[in-house]
Amino acid sequence: MSRPIRVLLMVENVALARDHRLRKHAAALVAAGRSVTVVCRRDPGNRDVPGVRVFDYPPPRDGTSKLGFVREYLYSLLMAAVLTVRAMLAGGVDVVQISSTPDLAFVLAVPLRLLGRTVVFDFKDLSPEMYAARYGTREGLMYALLQRFEHASLRTADHVVAVNASVREVAMRRGGVPAAGITVVGNGPPLAALAARAPDPALRRGREHLCVLAGMMGPQDSIHLAVEAVARVVRERGRTDTAFTFIGAGDAVPELRRLAGRLGLDPWVSFPGWVEQERLFDHLATADLGLEPNLEDFVTPVKALEYMAFGLPFVAFDVAETRLVAEGAAELAPPGDVPAFAALIDGLLADPARRAALGATGRRVVAESLAWEHQARRYLTVFDRIPRVSRAGRRAEARA
């Protein structure tokens, strides 16, 4: 009997415990009989995926300046290289999946391909666009380097897994990857998340309604626009019957807390930080409305997918991928129009029938097409097409 394909999932500067897409990839591969190793940043929850061997490294100091981010990612790349060698010596590797961002792991992919390993690139974020959103410029050496790194990562890979159709188009246009070399694998929630869950009234903090925003909060995520919209809902529209909870972590959280304070929102807005998945699901099952202020056309609105899985209607800006995902599950404001965003929040809180209709549509769309179980089948086809033994492995077995 031939041995299972040995897959190494490499992700820079993030922990397996914090990367839900990576956790789903690892679990799907294990369930399909693959041998799975993950190289990632250290976190106590990294061992929570059964059957996965984890090699992790101590987290670097978080970078806040451009130079700080360079140091942070170079450290992560070095540690990933060391642990990849360790994984190869401690059981072997046939296929390596590297993930964006940042797009630096191609430095490791080149020698791995020369050694006969197959390289898969999980293309889920666009580094140049994220840099532009964070720093407000598309000029300078760093932006140019990110473009080169992205191109190198795409060209080095044997196959590209794209998180959505917009990212797939970028891989073809900017990376010259043929359509046959790309598989679109979405990032929908597992169907298990659809299980009925009782709301927790305490999460409303004594108010009639609860609005939730859940996800990463970096400067590029435009969370400040949601906070400004909440200020308009409370101050201009007089809606003081609603609690707003911003769940998640990221570089922008300290400034978001200060912004809420300056706007006088402390009685209504809370930032509990990162919470365990079960507690997040409690919030989603209790909330009346979700918020998604993303302004980037290429970004898959993971927040929105989780809202929809729980039948939770949401308000978002009308950008490409959000519009495709929402499919009648949300009210969309013109991009960046904070007063319109606030008006939609206020209008939906006043209209329970409309909320119920939007929520039911979202739940149905997730169950029928967007849930991870549907996406996992596409993901596994990538590995089904890979020979059960790598090129290097076949040569070694032939010599034996």
Rank of each mutant, 00 (worst) to 15 (best):
L146K: 14
Q147A: 05
Q147G: 08
Q147W: 02
R148W: 09
R148P: 10
F149A: 03
E150S: 07
H151I: 09
H151G: 10
A152E: 05
S153D: 00
S153Q: 02
S153I: 08
R155F: 10
R155K: 11
R155D: 00
A157N: 13
H159Y: 04
V161G: 01
V161Q: 02
A162L: 13
V163C: 15
V163F: 14
V163H: 06
N164D: 06
N164P: 00
A165H: 15
A165M: 12
S166Y: 15
S166G: 14
S166M: 11
R168K: 11
R168C: 11
R168I: 12
R168M: 05
V170W: 06
V170L: 08
V170F: 03
V170K: 06
A171L: 08
A171E: 14
R173V: 13
R173I: 10
R173S: 09
R173Y: 01
R173M: 09
R174Q: 04
R174P: 00
G175Q: 02
G175R: 03
V177R: 04
P178H: 01
P178M: 07
A179V: 07
A179R: 05
A180S: 11
G181P: 00
G181T: 00
I182D: 06
I182E: 05
I182N: 00
T183L: 05
V185T: 15
G186N: 03
P189L: 04
P189T: 09
P189Q: 10
P190Y: 00
L191R: 09
L191I: 11
L191Y: 09
L191W: 11
A192W: 10
A192I: 03
A192D: 15
A193V: 08
A193G: 13
L194A: 15
L194R: 12
L194F: 11
A196I: 02
A196M: 09
A198K: 10
A198I: 04
D200E: 07
P201T: 05
A202T: 14
A202N: 10
R204N: 05
R204H: 03
R205V: 02
R205C: 07
G206M: 10
G206V: 07
G206N: 14
R207D: 04
E208D: 07
E208Q: 03
H209W: 10
L210H: 11
C211E: 07
C211L: 06
V212I: 08
V212Q: 07
L213H: 15
L213C: 14
A214I: 02
A214H: 08
G215D: 00
G215E: 03
G215R: 00
M216D: 14
M216G: 14
Q220P: 08
Q220N: 14
S222Q: 13
S222C: 12
H224K: 05
L225Q: 01
L225Y: 01
A226T: 09
A226D: 04
V227F: 03
